[in-house]
Design a protein around this nucleic acid. Structure first.
Lengths: 127, 127
DNA sequence: CTAGAACCTGACGCTGACGTTAGAGGCAAG
DNA sequence: CTTGCCTCTAACGTCAGCGTCAGGTTCTAG
């Protein structure tokens, strides 16, 4: 398939796909005219990339990471990086849970009439 | 205390504190000469701000959020925003756990000699 | 009173993951 | 062959959360 279809299937922009290739995260074959062509696995690949970006990993980190995921090949360096990223993500999860709990507490207060919490209606507040 | 001490106590840069004020997240009184002064609660406030930034919230969202945390006052709008942010964070936690599990799987493979996984030493690989 | 540390207000710089525009070329249909 | 959609490269624009520099002021220790 060509880049437009892959973009549609994977739910990302054409620009993003070209960017991924520029970063070395995604490969493509070229037609005589120079247009990119992708196999069916490409969509899964893009989903994986998106997932890693979504976890806050940088292009460089993803670039280092992908060979480990692909070929299950690790070097001492890449294993240290894997561990480091895992711990970083774990710490981020902990922080996010803390924030979520705090938001839950605020929400709980705003829902409990016996809490002494004030709920101000927009109209009332404007008066 | 003045801005330098607050920066030290809260573990952020002076620039960051001025930025928070610019965004409306942090208030200060001014001396005659125009220098900022903060109370003792300021450090906690900065920690909270950092926590929310760390959770991926934008300045604007934090600005909307803080009054709810402070005064326990909510409007229908702010409650919707609270719920939305909570769900967003929850979804992000789910995504991060997914990524962490995937990294764990890769790490487990790289540690298991019986997995058919290849561990390449850097020196060996260079040869 | 004076040195120097800390502070002030602009305002430009930086980074990363793209968005967007420009101008040119590829490709299937009629 | 040409219409029209898709694609190409190249390059500048964007946005957020600060870093950093310039040029000037304030505060405090001696």
């Amino acid at each position: 398939m060509r880049i437009g279809e892959l973009a549609t299937r994977a739910g990302v922009s054409v620009r993003a796909l070209r960017y991924y290739e520029e970063q070395g995260l995604l490969t493509s074959t070229r037609s005589n005219g120079g247009q990119r062509h992708y196999g069916d696995m490409a969509a899964d690949r893009v989903h994986l990339i998106q997932m890693l970006y979504g976890a806050g990993l940088s292009s460089k980190t993803i670039l280092d990471l992908l060979p480990c995921v692909d070929a299950k090949v690790t070097t001492p360096q890449s294993r240290a990086m894997l561990d480091g990223e895992r711990d970083r993500i774990d710490a981020q999860i902990t922080r996010l849970i803390e924030v979520r709990d705090r938001l839950d507490a605020v929400i709980a207060l705003s829902l409990s009439p016996a809490s002494g919490c004030t709920t101000v209606d927009a109209v009332t507040a404007a008066a």
